[in-house]
């Protein structure tokens, strides 16, 4: 039998790059979960003041940072933070954005205008600016960074879902559901929402990469994770002053961010091609 799921799998299986990227993400998630049990050194409280900034070696695979800590262990522990930040913030943004989009698209009129005006205003700020403002008000820290990044993911999801809702609303099966007297809630949840899922899923996966970058950027600007949290952006920020003397301190977190975001982007591309080739890119 051809369920939508098997249909999706049939198409997705052909995307070798995306499959590999998905595998990488999976490995990353497993590593992040297991990190506390597999790290060779304590990421925050192991330190050795005699080997400051020493380059990669058999003992310290990725070298030692300016405070005498093992960079490999810190990167592993940091993966938990970056992945959580990316996933949670997009999840929040997607849920709120989807609800707003459904309401705006289904009811139109006043609701639509109010919500879309709100999105316009949010759009009128460059994303990072909004995030900086929110973090400045709430105070620095990873939780507030996640809130900031979620807020600025909302309008993209709202617009996307609104567009889909407008299109689906006038399809025959929705009209017929309405004619047999189904309530608004039933129509939206049972008939319209499922039609928007694939677009949301694709966007979700593409958005995680952006969110990881934004969260890291905020930490890089000193507004995110507080030391000694091994957040990747914060690690890069700390490594900045050592660029000339110990470039490896900056190299590994930079590569980690790059590979992770790359994997999510490739996965997103694959999902898009398999689920919804018509969706617009970013």
């Amino acid at each position: 039998m051809r369920t939508p799921w098997s249909e999706f799998w049939r198409k997705f299986r052909k995307q070798h790059v995306a499959l590999a990227a998905g595998g990488f993400v999976l490995v990353l998630v497993v590593l992040a979960v297991l990190a506390p049990y597999v790290v060779p050194f304590d990421a925050e409280n192991f330190f050795d003041y005699d080997t400051l900034n020493s380059p990669p070696s058999a003992k310290h695979w990725f070298g030692v940072d300016p405070l005498g800590r093992d960079i490999f262990s810190r990167l592993l522990m940091g993966s938990r933070i970056s992945l959580t930040a990316g996933f949670v913030s997009v999840a929040f943004g997607a849920v709120i954005g989807t609800v707003l989009g459904l309401v705006a698209g289904y009811y139109e009129g006043w609701w639509d205008r109010a919500i879309m005006r709100l999105c316009d205003v949010l759009f009128a700020f460059p994303g990072i600016l909004l995030a900086i403002a929110i973090v400045a008000i709430l105070g620095s820290g990873m939780a507030n960074v996640i809130i900031a990044v979620s807020i600025f993911s909302i309008p993209t999801f709202a617009r996307l879902v609104r567009g889909n809702t407008l299109a689906l609303k006038h399809l025959t099966y929705v009209e017929s559901a309405r004619s047999i007297g189904a309530s608004d809630t039933t129509i939206v949840l049972r008939h319209i929402f499922p039609g928007t899922i694939s677009a949301v899923v694709v966007y979700f996966s593409m958005r995680i990469g952006t969110s990881i970058i934004t969260a890291a950027s905020l930490s890089f600007l000193g507004m995110g994770a507080q030391p000694p949290t091994p957040e990747w952006g914060a690690m890069l920020n700390e490594a900045r002053s050592e660029m000339m003397t110990a470039p490896h301190v900056a190299l590994f977190p930079a590569v980690a961010i790059f590979l992770t975001v790359l994997a999510f982007n490739l996965l997103g591309d694959g999902l898009r091609d398999a689920l919804d080739p018509k969706i617009e890119q970013r």
């Binding site: 990469g209 970058i213 591309d269």
Partner: peptide, 22 residues
């Protein structure tokens, strides 16, 4: 292209500065 969207600007900036300027 996909690498371009995956590399955070601040990291890219640091790398370029390190290589070409320093």
């Amino acid at each position: 292209a996909v690498s371009g969207i995956s590399f955070p600007a601040f990291a890219l900036g640091m790398v370029l500065m390190q290589v070409f300027a320093v």
